[in-house]
Design a binder for these strands. Structure first.
Lengths: 157, 157
DNA sequence: CGAAGGTGGTCTCTTTTCGAGACCGACGCT
DNA sequence: AGCGTCGGTCTCGAAAAGAGACCACCTTCG
């Protein structure tokens, strides 16, 4: 039970990771972005045990990342990305960039191409004020409103 | 044993996730980016069981993401980010952006500020050719050299 | 009608992983 | 000697994952 409590920490990296940080969740979401919507499709594509998939899909629905609904044409279930889920795309693309750079000795297995353009999707870290590119060295952490609210609410320690 | 074999798939999202996709690994790396280098510091900050930490650090060193060395001044061990590890930063920042947007009702707990600038680090997905901002809808997957090499090498199926 | 096949979903049983905390040897200090 | 800290190891009970059978429901097709 200790691990789940990490979600209470005032940290916007830790909190998502408690939801996304496991063996299968991000893989399921990757499939969802590839257009997969059906239980058996997720299961077959990933080789994930059915009970595990059931659990993970349920958790993602609980968190509002996926939405479960009956398909319009038939009556089978569909799992679709919500807006919140859709916003996870940069995370997957950042992983993709790293994978291409460091785990793809033969070059990228897949190009994530820009529609109607020779270019390719790439993630970049930049300053939202001056627009300059940034790396970890350029970053200075500083307390924000969420931290103050957390302290005011009587955080332990 | 099935799960580890996902690393053989020609997919630059799947392969990193087999390394990074678990409860603790990305949290450890988050600490590393925050400047943490010592075993006991990782352990204390995260509350991770010592044996687990030992295992994870070892795995990250094996993958060349962290480098273990004896500290110059003393003789205690240090774990530092390699170049490869350093390149993971955009992933953590993408997670941070999502956490700020969807899991921080009181606002960001921490601002990742640009040094000497009022701005803040933000991840964006853009085309590396025309520079246009992109979302999942603008992306078209297309076979790349890594996929062809994988097929030529006699991939199953 | 009844069999076949697909759907999402559940249950059981075994193996693997995780978590908590004691324990260790090496080193430094006093 | 006595104590504290360091990274690291060991044990053991608890939790999670994996495999695969099983289920009810619905279509389709003979």
């Amino acid at each position: 039970m200790r691990y789940e409590q990490l979600a209470d920490l005032p940290c916007s990296i830790t909190r998502p990771l408690v939801v996304l940080g496991d063996r299968w969740t991000l893989l399921i979401l990757k499939e969802a972005f590839a257009g997969v919507r059906r239980f058996n499709a997720f299961q077959g594509n990933l080789g994930i045990p059915r009970s595990r998939l059931q659990d993970r899909l349920g958790r993602l629905v609980e968190h509002g990342i996926l939405v479960r609904q009956q398909a319009a044409d038939g009556d089978h279930a569909e799992y679709r990305l919500s807006r919140k889920g859709h916003d996870l795309y940069p995370i997957l693309m950042a992983i993709k960039d790293w994978g291409d750079a460091h785990m793809a000795p033969d070059g990228p297995p897949v190009h994530y191409r820009h529609r109607d353009c020779p270019g390719e999707a790439r993630v970049s870290l930049a300053c939202d004020c001056c627009g300059e590119r940034m790396t970890a060295h350029d970053v200075v952490p500083e307390a924000g409103p969420g931290l103050l609210a957390h302290v005011d609410a009587g955080a332990p320690g």
